[in-house]
Design a binder for these strands. Structure first.
Length: 111
DNA sequence: CGGTTGACTGTTT
DNA sequence: TAAACAGCCAACC
């Protein structure tokens, strides 16, 4: 049906942003799950790339994206600290070792 | 234009 | 349990 010619970069970006925006407060999704929900299975790194280039003023709930181990992915600056703070303010509990229980807080996009 | 890098992940040692 | 490996691919230099 819908011809699925190579989606442009912008289309991929839009799909990823849409998925992240749909994550409810207090829930998290992994990079891989976001990619898969956006129709891009196996492109977890693409999600990370996008978030890395996200402007500071962005309203996207970027803090709700964590890695498959349920931990906050490392990066330069105080990003990881701010991310954890934001998640804790939403009610997300961190286990000893800085891990989030994905079985409890993981979000699976409907559909 | 080609090589390197990296907010990833599942599989295999 | 931990480390190495193999895919991934746009951004960067």
């Amino acid at each position: 049906m819908t011809p699925r010619p190579t989606p442009s970069m912008d289309e991929r970006h839009a799909g990823i942003y849409r998925v992240i925006r749909a994550i409810p407060t207090g829930r998290v999704m992994t990079y891989g799950a976001v990619a898969a929900a956006a129709g891009l299975p196996g492109r977890a790194r693409l999600v990370g790339m996008l978030l890395r280039r996200l402007p500071d003023r962005s309203r996207l709930p970027w803090q709700r994206v964590v890695n498959a181990a349920g931990r906050i992915s490392a990066r330069g600056g105080g990003g990881p600290i701010e991310q954890r703070l934001r998640l804790e303010l939403e009610g997300v509990r961190f286990l000893p070792g800085g891990r989030i229980d994905l079985a409890a807080y993981g979000w699976h996009a409907p559909g």
